[in-house]
Design a binder for these strands. Structure first.
Lengths: 224, 224, 224, 224
DNA sequence: AATGAATGAGTCTTCATTCAT
DNA sequence: CATGAATGAAGACTCATTCAT
């Protein structure tokens, strides 16, 4: 433990990181109000007091976890949204990345974090930032495509929010249907399959309506 | 206070209902783990012991609230989804009803209820039922429309889940952006406007892609 | 315990009183900061939670103890200060009463209570009231005597404060010199003797200076 | 910060002194039980561990503060009590010095220190010594004056204790009445005025009783 | 049906203290 | 001489729940 720390980088994470890792897992399972410092200490392998050496209080831990998640999520989503290939391909990457993040890092679901978050303005602000940093790169794709004349002039931001809603909906459904229960210790490995990705992209691009019979007009199918 | 309360049976709700009303509000604000029996008693105007006369424990209260919400939600959504008019009109009613329910009854958001729900199989089962009872009537619309040849042969259930996801996404966004914070005492009265409803229906029906030039073939618009 | 509560009035004190009794003893021993709710519960024979059923928090217990002490102290001191006999006799009663209160009820020493009291404006206010209610009846004696021409025109209130200071000084000395230590479980029974009372009254009345060569008799000025 | 601090040895007090200074302030504010090593470290500008380099434990800090206070107090009071001038003048110096010490050094009030002092025999012994070293030089004045026939044969030690009690009483009153609260950060600068000093000396010397109808002059017995 | 006193395990947090560096 | 990570007991206080009335 004291000698040659280099070869064991995974074992000797700085305590602060260990706490954050455990905290994210527990937050996911029990929510903020249900997160017990005692349990967090146990799972971190540290004494209760030690946690308070690194964080002033429970709330600060939530904020730190959120901050970290925001950074990771933005980085991945932005990378997925970028690219010079077609808009459909970029959207597909975003969708796949979202599901993958959910499985690998268990991030984002924190979007749904509502306990106590509801009362704390600082947490609310972070969640808003969180959402904004996800919405923006996706909205940018739509805006570009619309400008390029490849998409209809829909509201780019609303559309991005809609896409994120769809994705979140599938994630929630999977967690709910998971046989082991939400946030179980044993994380079910079943990824959200390609069928869901295909469906989502297809729906987003084309909608549900029959493509208009290419010969005559069907102009009145559009509402509003 | 004790005498002559009989003549007002309609005004003084049965205690059980009073508790459920208060419980729903508190669950919305603080989540399950954050729901305190003491606070529930105070808000119900009853003694703590009295609550235990009506419910065996805290979990039973959650279950009752969920049951009640399920009934109300199903009833409204089913009514909105029914009708002999066009599919677009029925979908529009569903969308509007969802947002309205959210504002009037504050239901549904419980979909996102995650604390302790994660550990309790009975609560999980209820949430699954909840979701199913919302998805089904919506999926039925899609199935009908597809059978009638008015919609493309998409996966009806996935599409219904997608629609619910979009709706939930907008609700979450509104709560997050509300200046008063999530679950605040003063519930912001701003409904989700017609623009959101229009956008959602339009996106769902038509997708984002440019409609193919109505003269020639549009076979290559579908991705994959 | 349930039947015939009358014959055991000392055993079946209402819990609130039991807590206050124990709290006063512990406050005396350890001060406010040193008062442990756990210890208080143990000494009260109640569970920790039960105490919080009767008092909202630790501070409220201090306030209640102070309130009770104020009432008792005022009542005794006022009774001692009243009377139609000579001023010296009344002062002597006040002095004796103060020492007796100290021994029997262990009150007043709370005058010296300084921990956390220092920070809490409400506690400070109570202590000021405490002091005022002791000072006033004593100062009244001096004021009367001065008006009657039986005492020199000294500042009555300052003189009362001075007398209380002397008394407090002897009490502090006795506690400090007590072989068992301050606030020990075994309360030393040695009262502050008549010699101290005599000394105090003599000093207060006559001062230390040699009386000017007496021309006439002044025999009745000296108590005893 | 680490380099070249040597040339300022007078400005950067030895750490031990810094700790004692901070400790005295905090003891005054919060008492012993309320003194937190964390806060002490912060106010000392040192790490918690460093404090334990200078003192074995918290109790030792209290003892050191007391020792230092005793030395300072004795030195000042003895100097004030000494002198070849009249007894009244020497007493007046003692009284003024006491109040001044209280304001400048905030010492002595520790006399009232009761937390944990009550349980620790060593601390009790120190407090007894403290008191003794204050009482003795004052009692000596009385003893001398009595021997010289300038004062009545009162009990010199009891009288000294009485005087200290009066002084302490005024100090307590000032702290209690101070608008800023006991031990506040902003120490109110208002000294106890000359009126209090005059009153105290007058009362001590002459008592409250009417001086017997003066045949000859006794003008020089009254101070001021 | 309703109450409020009572409980003990639980909450988050701070404590004084140790120790390797 | 100095640090900061670490600790486990203790701090005040809340929890869901029980029960006699």
């Amino acid at each position: 433990m004291t000698v040659a720390e280099a070869p064991l980088p995974s074992n000797s994470l700085p305590s602060k990181e260990v706490v954050l890792e455990a905290a994210q897992r527990l937050l996911l399972q029990y929510g903020y109000a249900g997160l017990s410092m005692r349990e967090l200490a146990k799972q971190s392998g540290l004494a209760k007091g030690t946690i308070y050496h690194h964080f002033p209080d429970k709330r600060a831990i939530l904020l730190s976890v959120l901050e970290r998640d925001i950074a990771i999520a933005r980085q991945h989503i932005e990378a997925a949204a970028a690219g010079e290939d077609g808009y459909a391909a970029r959207l597909r990457r975003v969708i796949a990345t979202f599901f993958q993040l959910q499985q690998e890092r268990r991030l984002l679901i924190l979007l749904a974090l509502r306990d106590a978050a509801g009362r704390d303005p600082q947490v609310c602000a972070l969640l808003r930032r969180y959402r904004q940093e996800l919405v923006q790169p996706i909205a940018a794709i739509f805006a570009e495509a619309i400008a390029a004349g490849e998409m209809r002039p829909v509201n780019a931001e609303m559309t991005a929010v809609s896409l994120l809603g769809i994705l979140q909906g599938f994630v929630a459904q999977r967690m709910l249907l998971g046989d082991a229960g939400i946030g179980d210790d044993v994380i079910s490995d079943d990824v959200i399959g390609d069928d869901v990705i295909d469906h989502t992209l297809d729906l987003l691009l084309c909608g549900v309506l029959r493509p208009p019979p290419p010969v005559e007009s069907t102009s009145n199918t559009q509402p509003g």
